[in-house]
Design a protein around this nucleic acid. Structure first.
Length: 437
RNA sequence: GUGGAUAUAGUUCAAUCGGUAGAGCACCAGAUUGUGGUUCUGGAUGUUGCGGGUUCAAGUCCCGUUAUCCACCCCA
């Protein structure tokens, strides 16, 4: 009694109450439906992998953030920090049982031991979708298309997907004659939106001469329409390149399909992860840029090469469910349902216990979610329970109704009774009122 | 990981110079019944995040610790 254990959870880890979990599940369902509609199939992988498998192509940062330990058999293991690297391993392991191009989605938790902030946790859920086996504009376009469809299906307000291309940027740097400090330059360039042109210029001049620095700044801050910027990038990088041609084709496809509205070409987007080789993208909410990217990814043509000799070019994207939730919560656009129950059967007469459950069963057969209150308590109690759980209807059946083979339906929101009707009539009434509301 | 801010009832917030913790809302019981939004009566709100220290006395001052938020870093 004296030594109760504190019911605490670890920093960056969270419990989800029904209210939150219901909307999380709804969002996941919407995404899953979208992914399926593009012919994508679900997979799953273990949360624990050999450390060498996960760190094979990671950067130094991943090293620091990964949860890593020795298991009971003395194996050096680690928890997955994203879903892309395990997917590459998965493809290498199962390539002979699969077919190409392979399009999968994967919604699951990942772990990173970094410092927490709003929308940044140590345990969080990613919704990944990737296409492996083809290096074509069709595949690049399809990922962008799924992103567009997903975010539209979720009804995310005021959003822009920033698109860029590593290949063009590399061609540009090569044209400039820069081959050192590439990672450093990428990092500085990526900060443009956050720290501004002056600061970026200042930092770049520390790495390269002023002329080159201003060229880089000119490249990453190129303005105008998608096509205008693309033209400018080509000019700055010494003419058309495979990357620019690819991006041009993808752009044409977006226009042909009428989904070019949400995409902007933003050359300052580079992405920190070093396995990206082609198109890259990041998505920010216009209203909440501070919360970070809610959906990003790109093309990685060599990722599986550390596990297999088979060429497996891939392109994919990841939606950060928790970050998205944090944003939607702040914007007040999450539905805060407390339960899915449509009808509560009031438990008022101890002699009719069994009957109450048979009414519930009939309601369920009619497609409604129904539950019986699990104790014979007074009405006030049972109504309060219904209110707590936000249940919209109650079925009342006492001796009178039972004898007549009827029930009384109560609309708990309108506080209106429909007395002495049959269960079938109640079902119709409930569906009618629910539809209207 | 580094630096800064914050932590009081379920919740939103009080508590003077250091003097044993308070209000609204919410909650529970009853008046109150085969019908919960009103009213009335009564009740509990709590190891002041946690652990030490100073003091006759600590929510208040000091140290440590944990969590949250903010910035850096990085990213979803």
């Amino acid at each position: 009694m004296a030594n109760l254990i504190q019911p605490k959870v670890l920093k960056g880890f969270r419990d989800f109450l029904p209210e939150t979990e219901i909307s999380r599940k709804e969002i996941q369902q919407t995404l899953e439906d979208t992914f399926k509609s593009f012919g994508m199939v679900p997979i799953d992988t273990p949360i624990l992998e050999y450390t060498e498998v996960l760190l094979g192509k990671g950067s130094g940062e991943t090293d620091k953030q990964i949860y890593r330990f020795d298991d009971h058999g003395g194996r050096d293991v680690a928890m997955r920090f994203d879903l892309t690297v395990p997917f590459a391993r998965f493809m290498a392991a199962h390539i002979n049982e699969l077919y190409l191009p392979f399009k999968r989605y994967h919604i699951s938790k990942v772990w990173r031991g970094e410092n927490t902030q709003r929308g940044r946790y140590r345990e969080f859920t990613q919704c990944d979708f990737d296409i492996v086996g083809v290096d074509t504009p069709e595949a690049d376009f399809e990922i962008l298309s799924v992103m567009h469809a997903s975010l539209t299906a979720l009804g995310i307000p005021e959003i822009h997907m920033n698109v860029s291309h590593r290949g063009i940027f590399n061609a540009f740097l090569e044209h400039l004659g820069i081959s050192d400090d590439l990672a450093e330059i990428l990092r500085i360039v990526d900060k443009l939106a956050k720290i501004g042109e002056d600061k970026v210029m200042e930092m770049l001049t520390e790495l390269a001469d002023a002329d080159k620095a201003s060229k880089i700044l000119e490249y990453i801050s190129a303005g105008g329409s998608f096509d205008e910027i693309l033209l400018k990038l080509e000019q700055l990088s010494g003419g058309p390149s495979p990357g620019s041609e690819r991006l041009k084709t993808v752009r044409t496809m977006m226009v042909d399909c009428g989904i070019d509205d949400l995409f902007v070409l933003n050359p300052s987007i580079t992405r920190g992860l070093d396995y990206y080789t082609g198109i890259v993208y990041e998505t920010f909410l216009d209203a909440l840029p501070g919360i970070g990217s809610v959906c990003s990814g790109g093309r990685y043509n060599n990722l599986a090469s550390i596990y297999s000799k088979t060429e497996m070019p891939g392109v994919g994207s990841s939606i950060g469910l928790d970050r998205l939730m944090a944003a939607l919560e702040e914007l007040g656009t999450v539905s805060a349902k407390k339960s899915m129950t449509d009808v509560l059967i009031i438990n008022m007469d101890a002699n009719l216990k069994g009957h109450y459950f048979s009414i519930a069963s009939k309601l369920r057969s009619a497609g409604l979610n129904a539950e019986v209150f699990l104790d014979t308590k007074k009405f006030k109690n049972q109504f309060t329970f219904a209110e707590r759980k936000a249940i919209p209807f109650a079925v009342i059946c006492g001796e009178d109704e039972f004898k007549a083979g009827k029930i009384t339906l109560k609309d708990l929101n309108a506080r209106e009774n429909y007395e002495m009707i049959s269960v079938d009539e109640a079902v119709i009434k409930i569906k009618e009122i629910s539809k209207a509301g």
